[in-house]
Amino acid sequence: MTENNVEQPPRPQRCVIVVDGDLPAGKAANAAAVLALTVGQRHPALVGEPLVDASGCAHPGLIPVGIAVLAANQQEMSAIRGRAIAASCDVVTFPVQGQQTTDYGAFRDAVATVATDDLRYVGLALIGDRKPVSKAVANLGLLR
């Protein structure tokens, strides 16, 4: 409970970003950043308390549970998404069309022409309880 007696939703226990391991470093970093921004908006409870340094200067809070950034290939992405959704994880997807244009309207239009099962992803973010998230990304290594 908060001081206003309003119950806050529990903080998710795990947050993982999975990026296409074949992307060049800049595009992989872009995919992770885009996903992280959306995760922060969808799960504000993931943001920790502000950090205060020895001079008393406050710095914005960061995620206290950490975010592993893992690599997968294109064929694995849809399967990971499916496993995570089946396990009731929140899944944020970044379809490949998002790195093919800088126009968000064109991005939306391009995604609208592809059926869900045919979408390919440059990245995914999985948020939820530790065990289901871990199971969905089992055997994946860190992005290098």
Results as ranks from 00 to 15, higher is better:
Arg83Phe: 00
Val111Pro: 10
Cys89Arg: 00
Asp118Trp: 07
Tyr104Glu: 13
Gly98Val: 12
Gln100Arg: 14
Ala125Leu: 09
Tyr121Cys: 01
Ala110Tyr: 08
Leu126Pro: 01
Thr102Cys: 10
Leu119Cys: 13
Ala87Leu: 03
Gly105Ser: 15
Ile85Lys: 15
Val111Ile: 08
Arg108Thr: 08
Arg83Pro: 00
Pro95Phe: 03
Ile85Ser: 14
Ala115Gln: 05
Val122Met: 13
Gly123Trp: 11
Thr116Ala: 14
Val122Leu: 15
Tyr121Trp: 05
Ala110Asp: 02
Arg83Tyr: 01
Arg108Val: 15
Gly98Pro: 02
Thr101Ala: 08
Thr113Trp: 06
Val122Arg: 13
Gly82Ile: 00
Ala125Tyr: 05
Arg120Tyr: 10
Asp118Met: 14
Gly105Cys: 06
Val114Leu: 05
Val92Leu: 15
Gly98Glu: 06
Asp118Gln: 12
Gln97Thr: 13
Phe94His: 14
Leu126Gln: 00
Leu126Asn: 00
Ala106Pro: 07
Asp90Glu: 14
Phe94Arg: 14
Thr113Tyr: 07
Ala110Gly: 01
Arg81Ser: 07
Thr93Ile: 14
Ala84Thr: 03
Asp117Asn: 12
Ala86Lys: 04
Ala125Phe: 04
Arg108Asn: 09
Arg83Ala: 01
Thr113Gln: 14
Thr93Met: 04
Val122Trp: 14
Ala115Arg: 09
Thr116Gly: 05
Gln99Pro: 08
Gln97Ile: 07
Ile127Trp: 03
Phe94Ser: 13
Gly98Trp: 11
Arg83Ile: 00
Gly82Tyr: 01
Gln100Met: 15
Asp117Lys: 04
Gln97Val: 15
Gly82Val: 01
Asp118Gly: 02
Ala112Asp: 14
Ala110Thr: 02
Ala87Ile: 05
Ala110Phe: 12
Arg120Gly: 06
Asp109Glu: 15
Asp117Tyr: 00
Ala125Lys: 08
Gly82Asn: 07
